Simulated assay, not measured.
Amino acid sequence: MAGAHKIAHATLKGPSVVKEIIIGLSLGLVAGGLWKMHHWNEQRKVRSFYDMLDRGEISVVVEE
């Protein structure tokens, strides 16, 4: 045998604390943004409903 070939192996390291914090913050901000968008959409629907109710365009009483 002419000699052992050197194979580059990835060295296993522990978790990077800074990387984990950045990933966690990013995921949290994305989830928070989506939740706020959902909340604003629901708020817009409720406000629209009560505006139409005040204008008399709709009623919550069933007509006979």
Rank of each mutant, 00 (worst) to 15 (best):
P15A: 06
P15K: 07
P15Y: 06
P15Q: 05
S16Y: 10
S16D: 15
S16W: 05
V17C: 01
V17L: 08
V18Q: 12
V18L: 13
V18C: 03
V18H: 08
K19N: 13
K19G: 04
E20Q: 14
E20F: 09
I21G: 01
I21F: 02
I21N: 07
I21C: 04
I22E: 15
I23V: 15
I23W: 06
I23G: 08
G24S: 13
G24A: 12
G24C: 10
G24T: 15
L25V: 12
L25K: 10
L25Q: 10
S26H: 12
S26N: 13
S26I: 15
S26K: 13
S26A: 15
L27S: 14
L27D: 12
L27H: 13
L27P: 00
L27M: 13
G28R: 15
G28S: 14
G28D: 12
G28K: 15
G28V: 15
L29T: 04
L29H: 01
L29Q: 02
A31M: 11
A31T: 14
A31R: 07
A31W: 03
A31N: 11
A31C: 05
G32H: 05
G32P: 02
G32N: 07
G32A: 14
G33V: 04
G33S: 07
G33H: 04
G33W: 04
L34R: 01
L34Y: 01
L34H: 00
L34C: 02
L34M: 07
W35K: 11
W35N: 01
W35M: 09
W35D: 02
W35G: 02
W35Y: 04
K36P: 00
K36G: 00
K36D: 01
K36C: 00
K36W: 04
K36N: 03
M37G: 00
M37F: 08
M37T: 09
H38D: 02
H38W: 10
H38V: 12
H38Y: 07
H39G: 00
H39W: 07
H39T: 03
H39A: 03
W40H: 05
W40G: 00
W40A: 03
W40T: 08
N41E: 07
N41K: 05
N41L: 08
E42P: 05
E42V: 08
E42W: 01
E42G: 07
E42R: 07
E42Q: 06
E42L: 03
E42N: 09
Q43Y: 14
Q43G: 03
Q43N: 04
Q43K: 10
Q43R: 08
R44S: 11
R44H: 09
R44Y: 09
R44V: 03
K45I: 05
K45M: 02
K45N: 02
K45Q: 03
K45A: 03
K45L: 03
V46L: 05
V46G: 00
V46F: 01
